[in-house]
Amino acid sequence: MSLKNVLENWSDYRKGHEQGGHHDYEHMWVMAVDLDKCTGCNACSVACYAENNLAVVGKERMMKGQGMHWLRVERYWDEPQIGGDDGQFQSAGGSFLPMMCQHCNAATCEPVCPVAATYHTPDGLNAQVYNRCIGSRYCSNNCPYRLRYFNFFSYYEESWPEPLNQQLNPDLSVRDKGVMEKCTFCVQRIRTAKDTARREGRAVQDGDAVTACAQTCPTQAIVFGDMLDKESRVSKIWAKQQVELGKTKQVKANPELRGYRILEGLNTDPCIMYLDRVREV
């Protein structure tokens, strides 16, 4: 890419995903997270620890930002879209935001990996191949959402003293130091669903594959499914909210609809749509 080319095509820069690329997707797994229903209760995060063999790193390492929470619930006190909160007290509650890998279709982490350890699968997942990863951490540096977690140490040595190790999920590995990891949309559950469907000689149906977080959510704020299945619950929610994949800017017939993608302006084309929190004002 010559400088001349970059300058001449500046407005198209990082908009390649609008052309759809050359992928022939089997599935396109996406989520819809209704922030008005999300209570910030942490159930999703603990379910993720249980499902995905996430290491417990302890207080000191958590303080150094080494927590391995693939799904973390962020909390903000201000609400800039409705004028914030300048009074003496909180006039309303806080704002909770469950953040997991956004499985961007134009992922900024993918092209920077020197060994192609992170790549896009035909399921539309942003995958991490652990035994290919050399730990350059370029991907983590390039993720605008800060949702990649690096094994700086062999956390497993202290995380599961016997017999806690007996709880480990045999469907996926325990990661050792030097490896990057992150939310996989519970790829082992997707694989089980696909295998089961194939064994039964049918297509994967909506609800066959559910991530651990979506399954346990006490208010069912998280909906997971296949965007290519037009009848799936999640694709109907996206359609109803007039949010489309592969767009750098959403043009909504009704601009008041709540669906949005976080930091969409960076043209990462994330696969998680959030629905605005609602407040009585």
Partner: peptide
Amino acid sequence: MPRLGGSESQVGRRLVSTVSADVYRRTE
């Protein structure tokens, strides 16, 4: 403080976005 780091404020970005209940009732 042993606390999950980061900002307490969204610094104007659209992270957790909020709309009024009137808007919600009108659309959904």
